[in-house]
Computed example of a mutant assay.
Amino acid sequence: MDHDHFFPQPTREIAEKRAALAPEALEAWRNFSRTVYKEGALPEKYKQLIAVAVAHVTQCPYCIRSHTALAVRKGATQEEIMEAIWVAAEMRAGAAVAHSALAMDEMEKLAGK
């Protein structure tokens, strides 16, 4: 099934319009992004693996595609990328389990009334 119609393809025209509408904010974001992903205490490959995992949690299709490609370019293997995705899936599922305490608390409050 083709889901491309849900998300417009990034184009030069979209990028140019975004830049024209908020040039200072876009430049600040670009500088921030360059700073965050450059080699530091964490190698660039690890940073891209983190980005792949987070992209799956935030469910950003553009981020999934771009950071997967960047992770591969920085030397990540398919196995490393898939493991990062599974870590993200576990964290997302774990959050749902942990937050069930809120529902349990609310149910107990309502039962006590």
Rank of each mutant, 00 (worst) to 15 (best):
E27S: 10
C63R: 07
V52G: 08
T77M: 02
A89V: 11
L70F: 02
A22Q: 13
L49G: 07
P61C: 02
P10M: 06
Q78K: 08
F6Q: 11
Q48I: 00
E24K: 10
I81G: 05
E24A: 10
Y46D: 15
V54N: 02
K47R: 12
A41Q: 11
V57G: 06
E80V: 01
K113Q: 10
R92A: 15
A96G: 15
Q9V: 15
G94A: 05
A98W: 03
A71C: 02
H56Y: 06
P8R: 07
G75K: 00
A55F: 03
M82D: 09
A101G: 06
I50C: 07
I85K: 03
S33W: 05
R34F: 06
M107R: 08
Y37Q: 09
E80R: 02
Q59C: 00
K109W: 02
A55P: 04
R30K: 14
A53R: 02
A41E: 12
I81R: 04
I64D: 09
W86N: 13
E106D: 07
D2F: 00
T35D: 13
D105F: 03
E39N: 01
H3I: 14
I14D: 14
M82H: 08
A15I: 07
E83V: 04
T68R: 07
L26C: 09
A22I: 10
D4A: 14
I85G: 07
R30T: 13
A101D: 02
K109T: 05
W86P: 00
V72N: 03
H5T: 15
H99T: 10
L26M: 10
C63V: 04
V52R: 04
S100D: 12
K47Y: 04
D105V: 03
T35P: 00
T77G: 04
F6P: 00
A20P: 06
A41D: 13
A69F: 01
E83A: 03
A55V: 02
N31F: 03
A69V: 06
L110S: 11
A101E: 00
T11K: 05
K38I: 09
M91E: 10
Y62A: 08
L49H: 04
A76S: 01
Y37H: 11
M82F: 06
P61F: 01
A101Q: 01
